[in-house]
Computed example of a mutant assay.
Amino acid sequence: MLENIRIVFKENYNNRHRLFRLANYELRSQNSGTMFGFLWNFLNPALQIFVFWFVFAIGLRTSPPQGGYPYIIWMIVGIIPWFYISTALTTTGNSIYAFSGVLKRMPIPLSIVPVKSVLSALIGHLWAMLVVIGIIFCSGYTISGYWWQTFYYMLCSFAILVAYSLMASAIVVIFRDFQKIMNSIIRLLFYITPVVWVQEKLPDNLIFILKLNPFAYIIDGYRDSLLYGRGLMWHWKQGVFFWVITIVIFIIGCNIHMKFRKQFIDLI
């Protein structure tokens, strides 16, 4: 078991330069051939944000849980990391299949294929976060002194997404229906994660259950860091639970990946 983890770490570290090149290529290729090109990385989220803002802020008159910021600012700070999470969850499952043409022609360590999809989504997320901070300042507001904690929450999201990607990409090769199932679960996660609506008005026992969602820890962390000035210890129990879940998924993912990787080329 530990040997499998060591191999995955070693492959990704030794191929780190190739990993970044592949991630950049994947990000650029998503909108290649379009008129606006790279701008679609901002236009797509902007259009979705407008729809959610219109539905929840105008239609349902949802307000942020605390004063000081309008709902649109509160929503943007939570929905941008969700776009990163949902993109990685959606693309990493099929990452090995999507890269099958290259894998059949070139000897590439298989473990870096799902990881480069997560890294590609992270690079796009970094650009998007610059826009978020710009929107906050242009709206006449400031970010808290704990803004640097967003890098920690980026690390959290990257860690759990890499763990998931290693597991999901291997399972999808063996069981194609897994990605279809996960697409439905991802849509459910959007609504049980505090992305566009406030959970504080729910019963305490239901809030406790929803907080077990590891992505809730990340979304709340972004808002705590940029808007509310809360330190990392504010949700320390939730943080411990998050890292336990992440490590367990990573161990499972590494072992599933190593167990079936010899069959990948034949199956794809």
Rank of each mutant, 00 (worst) to 15 (best):
I251F: 09
G229N: 07
I192Q: 07
W74L: 06
N205L: 11
A46Q: 05
I245Q: 11
A216L: 12
P203N: 06
F241C: 13
L206T: 15
W74C: 08
K262T: 11
P107C: 01
Y13W: 15
G140L: 02
L206I: 15
K116F: 06
F158T: 12
R28M: 12
M167K: 02
A128Y: 05
G59A: 05
V195G: 12
Y146F: 11
A98L: 10
G239K: 11
M258N: 12
M167L: 13
S63A: 13
N255G: 05
S63F: 07
G231L: 04
Y71M: 09
F190V: 09
S63Q: 11
F36H: 05
I49H: 03
N213R: 14
Y13K: 14
K116Q: 14
I49M: 01
I256D: 05
M1F: 09
F38I: 13
V113F: 00
V118Q: 06
F38D: 04
Q48E: 13
Y146H: 08
S86Q: 10
L130F: 08
N183I: 14
H17G: 12
T142E: 08
A121R: 01
M106K: 08
G145E: 08
M35D: 03
R28W: 00
Y84A: 01
G68I: 14
N41T: 12
W234Q: 15
M75S: 06
L130S: 01
V248L: 09
R230Y: 13
R261S: 08
V131Q: 01
V51H: 01
I136M: 03
V248R: 10
Y13Q: 09
L103W: 04
N255A: 11
M182G: 03
A98K: 07
P194A: 12
G37F: 00
I85L: 09
I209Q: 14
Y97L: 12
Q48F: 14
G239D: 05
Q179E: 02
K104P: 07
I72H: 05
S86P: 07
G134V: 12
